[in-house]
Design a protein around this nucleic acid. Structure first.
Length: 472
DNA sequence: TTTTGAGTTGTTCGA
DNA sequence: GTCGAACAACTCAAA
């Protein structure tokens, strides 16, 4: 019956797509639409690498649609205006789209729904953000019980996965509809090791399932190794559905091994933070924990700039920050180390770090990024205790034991002897000269001293908690 | 309602 | 070098 619009936002896939599936079930013709929303495209919380990855994903999706007798219609502008206009141009009677959890997305969808019939479907997460509840109906704010409750619900099954449709019947006038041309720029730099698109996402998933996942629990913390799935950009844009990922983990050969279980735990972390942002939208602006909302941050702009550029003088921190700038991705352990360093050692507001990550991460997701930052800063749900301050030297020695990660991303340290690699300022001057790495010349001196910075962070957090206690 | 057990990812210190 | 305890209470989840 009639025409339905499939409004694509962060579900750039044809397989296991509930919004597409519902649109096809509802209507004879389906019109695939992407609206390039200036409020998102030009936001201070996005960046060129993620923009380029999105554009590539849209081109790949358009190719998949054309192979099925359809095409992608692109519009630029405010979604509620563009969708109302398209409804008038085509006579579409309904819009189907995958529900999102961020405050902006939910406001936007409410506005759209006030103008046109909007049907929200699941798919962003495996379980809807309000689905996992305590016995008394409340929302979990601690991960471990959330994980248990999540796993107690019926697990996704391969039979639920929706196949990509063979054809997507396009309304007859589709070729006459205006479609904005996708911007040519930004283009993904060649240093970015992620090819956008659903085909690549599936290829990576299958590859990870053949062996990587079985080593995952053991290898995932070593930054120089390809021990993680590196699927986050694809999950971010729905080039792979979370359900497809979970089914793959649950049906992995010998799923009883620790690898598949640990990897599913990470998917459940994603679900947990989506649920937190949906149910506590204030975390985007302020600390989840009320007693750490007024930390006396130092917020030194020079220190922040050094952190951003990967010039703090701590090799493991600098390697992580440079990996981010070059590739649009950072190893999970490196994310924790640099986040701890920014908030604890430099006493810079976690929101500054959150924004920088959003500007550079291809997988930058409001819920997961916010959750991760608040966890590291100690301000979040189920956060790290405030006295847990990573020692960047020890973390380097433990998780980059041969120094391959540091040498790769900070090549000026290439010839530094292993014993000094994670604390190069300890090199005697003749060793520095022999290694071609004079501290303060070839590589920066540390911008803070660990022991002193640690004491300052402990004192500042303590003061914030005591002040909060006193004002109750 | 009260009570009890538990909480992603760490570091430092002293024996 | 290795090991266990302390860090500091606090809140949450569930019985």
């Amino acid at each position: 019956m009639g025409i339905a619009i499939w409004w694509i936002r962060r579900d750039l896939r044809l397989s296991d797509n509930q919004a597409l599936h519902a649109a096809l079930a509802h209507s004879r013709y389906v019109l695939p639409v992407f609206v390039l929303d200036p409020a998102l495209w030009n936001s201070g919380y996005t960046g060129d690498k993620r923009r380029a990855f999105l554009l590539g994903g849209l081109r790949a999706l358009d190719a998949g649609l054309r192979a099925r007798g359809s095409r992608l219609i692109v519009r630029h502008g405010r979604p509620e205006e563009e969708l109302a206009r398209l409804r008038d141009e085509t006579g579409a009677t309904a819009i189907f789209t995958e529900a999102d959890v961020s405050p902006y997305a939910r406001r936007r969808d409410e506005q759209v729904a006030s103008l046109v019939p909007l049907h929200l479907t699941g798919g962003l997460t495996i379980r809807p953000p309000e689905a996992v509840r305590k016995a008394d109906g409340g929302i979990y704010t601690v991960y471990t019980p959330y994980n248990r409750a999540w796993r107690d619900l019926p697990l996704p099954d391969a039979r639920e996965l929706l196949a990509a449709p063979d054809t997507i019947p396009a309304p007859p006038p589709i070729d006459e509809l205006d479609s904005a041309i996708l911007p040519e720029t930004p283009v993904l730099p060649s240093s970015v090791p992620f090819l956008p698109g659903e085909t690549e996402a599936q290829r990576r998933l299958q590859h990870f399932m053949t062996e990587g996942i079985f080593e995952y629990a053991r290898e995932r913390d070593f930054m120089a190794r390809a021990g993680t799935s590196e699927l986050s950009p694809y999950l971010r844009f729905g080039m792979l559905s979370a359900r497809q990922a979970a089914v793959a983990a649950l049906t992995a050969r010998d799923g009883a091994q620790p690898g598949p279980k640990t990897w599913l735990d990470e998917l459940i972390w994603r679900e947990f933070y989506m649920s937190i942002l949906f149910n506590f939208p204030n975390v985007r602006r302020e600390s989840f924990r009320t007693n750490l909302r007024h930390i006396a941050w130092d917020n030194d702009p020079d220190a922040f700039a050094a952190w951003q550029a990967g010039r703090t003088g701590y090799p493991i921190v600098d390697a992580g920050m440079r990996q981010l700038l070059a590739t649009g991705w950072m190893h999970n352990r490196a994310r924790m180390i640099v986040a701890s360093f920014l908030t604890k050692h430099l006493l810079i507001d976690w929101r500054w770090g959150e924004r920088h990550f959003m500007q550079h991460l291809i997988d930058g997701d409001p819920a997961a990024n916010n959750g991760g930052w608040q966890w590291s800063a100690g301000t979040g749900t189920d956060a790290a205790p405030y006295f847990r301050i990573f020692n960047p030297v020890l973390q380097g020695e433990k998780y980059d034991l041969h120094g391959d990660y540091v040498r790769h991303w900070a090549p000026e340290l290439e010839r530094v002897p292993a014993a000094y690699l994670h604390q190069p300022w300890m090199m005697p001057i003749d060793v520095q000269q022999a290694a071609g790495c004079v501290i303060g010349v070839d590589y920066p001196a540390p911008i803070v001293e660990h022991a002193r910075a640690r004491e300052r962070a402990l004192a500042t957090y303590k003061a914030a908690r005591e002040q909060a206690q006193a004002t109750l």
